[in-house]
Design a protein around this nucleic acid. Structure first.
Length: 645
RNA sequence: GCCGGCGUAGCUCAAUGGUAGAGCACCUGUUUUGUAAACAGGCGGUUGCGGGUUCGAAUCCCAUCGCCGGCUCCA
């Protein structure tokens, strides 16, 4: 345990000490340190309120001031049971005790009147706790299993010094300013309207520009790499997804199917009342849910999310993935080995029924557009194609200056049943992914159980401003769907062969990627992505006319520009443009109008002085064409965005 | 979905049982401005929605929708 972890672990014991003083009935579960602090889980009828947090924190300060020593006590299993019982903590602690392997030592740590089953280690004295703060209350299932009771978790953080704690809290506040949900509102990039629906992104004009530019960028790269563009509809028949295996494997996280009018009419013609229709649907659904749960070994499918079955009804589903559609395009004509690889690309919009509590701004939504593509190749081509996909991801991320990501190789869960197909093929595919990931030059982790049900994958994972990880790009090898759809090509031997599929999406989804991108740039987008690239600011309306001619020239050159024609003073116009995070402000006065020049103020450097307009135009055009990254901001005191703007 | 917190004007927030307010944004007028906020006036809310308690509800209670933080989940 590092010294910081030790400090935080001790803080969690002191938290429990304080909670028991204030609420003696609380039952304790566990309280470990985390990357950013610590928590402790309690079971208590009384629901903690924010006011309780204040009381508990005050009590923790007292405990710290009491300068309690931490003692380690090694005991036999029998003694451990006795201690736990004597404290009335058998509800969870006996279970935790049972987790400790027979050959391991059992230890308790005691500070003052508090004693807890604990492997350690701890600080020597509670007075070491000089800088801590309780942050939030949350529900957390015992042992992380939603079938268990939900406990109350108190989160806090602790640092060796008050300055470090203050710095961390400031950093948290700073991060909130870069939150894509806040910037999305301030910069008018997207909205979510509750009448349209939770988790459904409405791209407003500014956000749409960013998305469009990204799509143009990726499309150009795809053309270079020999991809073919396709378009497919947003729905497909239930049968299609039964063939692919998405339905019912993932039925719980799909929108309910759209029932065909004819099927609906048939049922109604039988004279069923509405309640009877629902009863029939429920009966079939229950049966189906039971089947699926038996197969997966989990009770994850609930009847109400499993509505019409095809034995009863025909229907269409909002597509949860694009692959079945692309597969049908591939299968629509015979293929020779000479044609392969076939690479079909589409910005395909898919819909998934995410749990309401999991929705989050643009990063977790119910409808999203993947920059999707499916590659159909021979087994020999797999390794090279995976590498090609990875290089594409690298191009995308490096063009955007995103280097702070990690790579995860998702392998099948050896004990799980949530994978389909031949284990031998999985081994080959997993080896191919591992080899490909190794060539990236980025550290990667192998994570069993993180595979898709049809094959292993390589994911790119990035953290958001508050430290939550999101999966972006992904490359997945698939030996299963070609079998399910009986895909073939004719080899050089004139025999029919099975192609291998690769699924890949370098951005993941446009929604999530843009959300992460907003936070990555803090709203200061590179010029090629900025919704507004140039703001013309005439000093007085006497030069508005000059501004108008420049605006026309900028627009003719394809530069997104506008003119601030308000009758405000210069400072106010500059302030407005800065808050809108426009990369270039061109100040225009009488001098500039006479000499066909502009006074350039860049977002990065501030006032750059006067230069000929023609020269500036070339400069900004080239910056756009090369997709230049923003220069690092010269640090000045930037006033925080005020209320009301 | 679960636990907890929160929903007041376009935005950020006041008003703790007694006439819903401020700043900014927006509109109008004055001002014609040299690198982050000129001045004055005006417009704007059935306090998320629906019930209830009360002489009286933004405020208290119930229900519902949504948002936030976690947990669970994430093809």
């Amino acid at each position: 345990m590092t010294p910081l972890e030790e400090l935080r672990h001790s803080a969690s014991h002191i938290l429990a000490t304080a909670v028991l003083r204030v609420f003696p009935d609380a039952k304790l579960d566990i309280g470990p340190p985390t990357d950013t602090g610590f928590y402790y889980d309690f079971d208590l009828d009384h629901k903690f309120t924010p006011d309780d947090l204040v009381r508990i924190e005050a009590e923790m300060k007292k405990v710290a001031d009491e300068n309690q020593a931490f003692f380690r006590k090694e005991v036999s299993r029998e003694e451990a049971v006795e201690i736990i019982k004597s404290r009335g903590q058998e509800r969870y602690k006996l279970g935790r005790l049972a987790d400790i392997p027979a050959d391991e030592k059992i230890s308790f740590y005691q500070n003052g009147e508090f004693i807890d089953l604990c492997a350690g280690t701890h600080v020597r004295y509670s007075s070491k706790l000089k800088a801590f703060k309780l942050l939030s209350i949350a529900g957390a299932y015992h042992r992380g299993d939603e079938k268990n009771k939900q406990l109350q978790r108190i989160y806090g953080t602790a640092f060796p010094t008050k300055d470090e704690l203050a710095a961390y809290l400031t950093q948290l506040d700073q991060a909130k300013l870069r939150d894509h949900r806040k910037l999305g509102k301030d910069l008018k990039l997207f909205v979510i309207d509750e009448d349209v629906g939770q988790g459904l992104i409405l791209w407003t004009p500014n956000g749409a520009i960013i998305r469009q530019e990204l799509q143009n960028f990726i499309s150009a790269e795809l053309r270079k790499q020999g991809y073919s563009q396709v378009f497919t509809p947003h729905i497909g028949k239930l049968e299609l997804y039964k063939t692919s295996g998405h339905f019912p494997y993932y039925k719980e996280s799909q929108f309910s199917p759209v029932i065909e009018n004819e099927s609906l009419a048939k049922i109604l013609a039988e004279g069923c009342s509405c309640t009877e229709v629902y009863a029939r649907l429920d009966a079939v659904s229950a049966q189906l849910a039971a089947q699926v749960n038996a197969r997966t070994g989990k009770e994850t499918i609930t009847v109400d999310r499993v509505r019409p079955d095809d034995q009863l009804l025909d229907g269409f589903m909002l597509k949860p993935m694009n692959c079945p559609h692309h597969i049908k395009i591939f299968a629509s004509q015979p293929h020779s080995y000479r044609d392969l690889p076939v690479r079909l690309a589409e910005f395909g919009t898919v819909y998934r029924w995410e749990q309401s509590g999991e929705l989050n701004g643009m990063t977790r939504v119910r409808g999203f557009t993947q920059d999707d593509a499916h590659l159909f190749c021979t087994e020999e081509q797999v390794a090279a194609e995976v590498l090609g996909c990875l290089s594409l991801v690298k191009i995308v991320l490096s063009t955007l200056g995103m280097s702070d990501y990690r790579v995860r190789v998702g392998l099948r869960d050896p004990d799980g049943k949530k994978f389909a197909g031949d284990p031998a093929k999985w081994d080959v595919a997993e080896a191919a992914c591992r080899t490909a990931a190794a060539t990236l030059g980025v550290p990667f982790t192998e994570e069993p159980g993180e595979a898709a049900f049809y094959g292993p994958k390589i994911d790119f994972v990035i953290k958001d401003m508050i430290g939550r990880e999101w999966q972006l790009g992904t490359v997945q090898v698939d030996y299963v769907l070609p079998v399910r759809f009986d895909l073939t090509y004719i080899g050089a031997d004139n025999q029919s062969h099975r192609p291998v599929m690769i699924h890949r999406a370098p951005f993941g989804s446009m929604e999530r990627f843009c959300g992460v991108l907003i936070e990555h740039f803090g709203g200061d987008f590179p010029v090629w992505l900025a919704p507004e690239q140039v703001r013309l600011v005439p000093i007085s309306d006497k030069v508005n006319e000059y501004g108008t001619t420049l605006l026309a020239q900028l627009k003719a050159a394809g530069v997104r520009a506008s003119l601030d024609g308000h009758s405000d003073k210069l400072g106010a116009k500059i302030r407005r443009a800065e808050l809108d995070k426009v990369p270039y402000i061109l100040v225009l006065g009488a001098k500039e109008a006479e000499t066909q020049s502009v006074s350039v103020r860049s977002r990065a450097k501030g006032d750059e002085g006067v230069q000929p307009f023609a020269a500036y135009l070339e400069r900004v055009k080239s910056e756009i064409a090369t997709r230049a990254l923003p220069e690092k901001k010269v640090t000045t005191t930037v006033p925080s965005r005020p209320q009301g703007t």
